[in-house]
Every structure is written in C-alpha cells, then in structure tokens.
Design a protein around this nucleic acid. Sequence first.
DNA 1: GTGGTCTAGACCACA
DNA 2: GTGGTCTAGACCACG
Lengths: 130, 130, 130, 130
Amino acid sequence: MPVHPATLFSIATGSPEPIYRQLVEQVRRMCASGQLRPGDGMPSVRDIAQALALNPMTVSKAYSLLEMEGVLARRRGLGMVVADAAPAAPGDRAELLRPTLERAALEARQLELDPDTVLSLFATILKEST
Amino acid sequence: MPVHPATLFSIATGSPEPIYRQLVEQVRRMCASGQLRPGDGMPSVRDIAQALALNPMTVSKAYSLLEMEGVLARRRGLGMVVADAAPAAPGDRAELLRPTLERAALEARQLELDPDTVLSLFATILKEST
Amino acid sequence: MPVHPATLFSIATGSPEPIYRQLVEQVRRMCASGQLRPGDGMPSVRDIAQALALNPMTVSKAYSLLEMEGVLARRRGLGMVVADAAPAAPGDRAELLRPTLERAALEARQLELDPDTVLSLFATILKEST
Amino acid sequence: MPVHPATLFSIATGSPEPIYRQLVEQVRRMCASGQLRPGDGMPSVRDIAQALALNPMTVSKAYSLLEMEGVLARRRGLGMVVADAAPAAPGDRAELLRPTLERAALEARQLELDPDTVLSLFATILKEST
DNA sequence: GTGGTCTAGACCACA
DNA sequence: GTGGTCTAGACCACG
C-alpha cells in the first residue's frame, strides 16, 4: 500500500518550476535513492491531486512523463507502479547531484569567489535546512 | 569604447533559461567580479542584437531590468553605462550564489545524501574546474 | 474437452491493445480459420483467468462480446461453446482483414508512397513470414 | 510561411486513436517523407486548433511530444520549426510502413488466407482510396 | 476503482 | 504574436 501522498511529495506552488515537473523530479529522485523500489505501487492520480490540492490532470501529466521515461509503468485498471527496469542508483547516488553542483561551481567562478568562501556558505546552508 | 558584444556574452539559445535572463545574469556577475567597472560603456542594443542574432526587444528587456536594479544607467546620447552607485555587492558577493546553493541543498536532501559527502564532492568540483 | 487455455491464447499484457480485445480477436480468427468449429467447447472464464494471470472480469467481458457477436453461445451447465450459426464469414473471410489493410493504405498515402512499391513490399512480407 | 493547417492535417474525430496522436504521427510521416524539411516553420497552435476545430491544448500536447522526440524544435516566442537533427527518411521511406504491413501479414496468416487473395484486396483498397 | 482524453477558458513567460 | 501551465469538469476505456 502506498505511502500517504501528502507526506510523499512537497510542492512549492509559488515556484517558477512547473508543478508537474516538481512531481516528476521528486519521483525520479526517490527511485534513484531507493526510497521507491521496483514494483512499489504509487498513489492514484486522484489521491495525490486531492492531498496536494492540485488538478488531477497536472498529476496525470507527471505520471505520463514518468511512464515515457520508463520510471513508472501502468498496470491497466490498477494504477501506476515503479517500473522493473528501474533506472536505479547508478553506482554512486551522489553523482546525481553533480550537474547541479557543477552549475554552482560555474557561477562561483564567474563571480571570482574563493572556493573556501563558497564551501563555507554551502556548509551553512546544508546544515540549516534540516 | 565598448568591448565587442560577441566576445562579451555567450548565449545558449537552446537553453531552458530565457535569453534575457542569461544576459542579465552575465552582466550582473561581470559587475560583481570587477570585469565591468562603474562608468564603463555597454554595447548598444542594436549591436548586441545583431552580433548575437537576437531580437532587439530581448536585449532591451535585459537592459531595462539591469537599469531598474541599478546595475546599469542610461547616459543620454551615450547609451548604457555601468552605474556609479556600485551595483557590485560590496559586502558579500557570495550572497549572489545563495539561491543556487539552496537549490542544490534541497536536491541533496531529497536524495537523502549525507551533508559531508555532498560537501566533499562539491569541493572536488570547485577545485578541478580551474 | 477444451484445449488448455495457456496454449490456446497468447496475451501481451504490456501491449497497447486491451486484453479483452486481444482475446476477442484471437477467438474470432480461430473460428474464421476453422481452428475452432461449431460445437467446440471453450475453457471456462476461471480457467483462462488463472492460466493467463488475468482478471476474470476481463475474460468474462471478452466472452460476453463474443456471445453478442454470435461467435460463441452459452450452453447452460456446459459453459461456452462455439456457436452453431457459423460465425465464420462463409463468403469472404478476407473482409475481416479489411480494416487493417485500410489503415495501412492510409499510412502509405501519407508517406506519399507509390501503390506498386507498397504492394511489392507487402508481397515480400506475406511470403517470407511462413 | 507554413501551409494552411486545414490542408496539412486530416483528423478523424471519430477514430479510437487520440487526436493528439493522429497529429503526432502525421507530422512524423511528413518529416520522414520529406514533405516537411528541417527549418520549415509549423503553423501555430492556435491556427491549427481553429482550422481543425480543436482545443489548443490538444494541439499543444502533440507539439510537446514531437519536441520531446526531437522531431520539432521550439523557437521561443516564434513558434515551432522542424528540427535540424531531423529523423529524416532512413534510406528507404517504404520501410516506415513495414511494421504496419507485418501486422497485417500476421492477421492474414491467423485467418489462414491465401496471400494472393490478400494482395488482391489490398491492391483494390490502395487504389480506391485516392 | 484506475488512468486517458478532450474542452473551455484563464493567466504567464518569452521575443 | 508565440507556446506553456493550470483549473474545472465531463466522458471514456479498462479491469
């Protein structure tokens, strides 16, 4: 039985990032990190939509994209499950964070900031955002 | 005399980031890092648009935003120049990096990664990308 | 006595074609081609559902449709049998293929292919797939 | 300048195939057959929607899928164009029809039809559907 | 019960 | 002008 949707997802409605994309990326990360495993059942579109106060179509769009990516699979008439051919943790989970960190490093260089200054700031942010 | 626009900016038209924002952020960073100094003249909207094959309205929008921010100023008859009122964050340039780092921290948490692991990876990336 | 269901049908649960329709079409073709003859007994819904790991309702739906079409008939106490009233198209079995061929013709036109080229390719495929 | 949408597409609203998918496949075929070439501009979502009496979102969904496939590319603020990296005619255009023809051949075999009968019927359909 | 499709109409970001 | 996103609500196909 799936986890309660409202505890599974956290949506920032004010974010510039579209809601359906926030959902897609959270599911992708949860699969990659092993919080969701192949065969696990996902909450129904309607449950998620109600729990997060979204339109079902928005949730459905996220599910459709995840199905096209091969992250989820449809069991017709039964709902979505995590796909068997799971794009699971590829060796090192931390590598999934590399693109984001590389972008940050690029900006830091463009600002001509000292690496130690940047690392110190990042450490603060990482710990305060518990 | 302004630098040639094509060498000053690097625009990725295929990027998901809007063109006008790429322009804004590049100018902001160049001001913050001292590559552009108060009083420096900026290329005209026309020159940039032609050199980078952009819609002049796009360039104009970027200039307008930078003017509202106080980074650039209009000098009648001369075009845009870098504003005197030092737009460069005098106290802490590193704060400009905070949003990017916060996003990285969010992703790290969703991946359930240990802060030390993340910091260590970031340190590596920061140093290798000379 | 009915053939064992698992050898009688081949179901692709992952196919975009609905399961009940796969069942319906396989039975229809087997009747049309004479593999199933009037009076032959069909496996029970339960047997098929268990053998193919399907929802019994799905099998039942297929049987109901086939009964409405006149392909199968209910014999009380005996289950479903192939109907006497020869559901097999006596005159022209080939007409059952018409919808599929019409779709192929539509695609050929959209690809602006020469009819003779298409016919030649189809002839090759028809003969090689013994 | 793009062709008039109503002459470019033919939609069967009564078909079981979703409208957005009909659009996707028609564009794919027109790219493959060379009727649409890299760089060609596509009609706007609104134009197509009005010409075919569809909801703009339906057309937009088709365009989005084609963009994800790499068939079309977005020129922000300007509309969609046929992508440079066009999945153009791979050697033989007729090969694009092969999957459909193979399916038809499979059904013909299941019906135990004579190849010549099938070919003759197909020839009739191909020519009458001018 | 499940997800999929479509419509109608609003608002936003971008060029 | 362009496409993108979201909502509200209806209907359908499938199991």
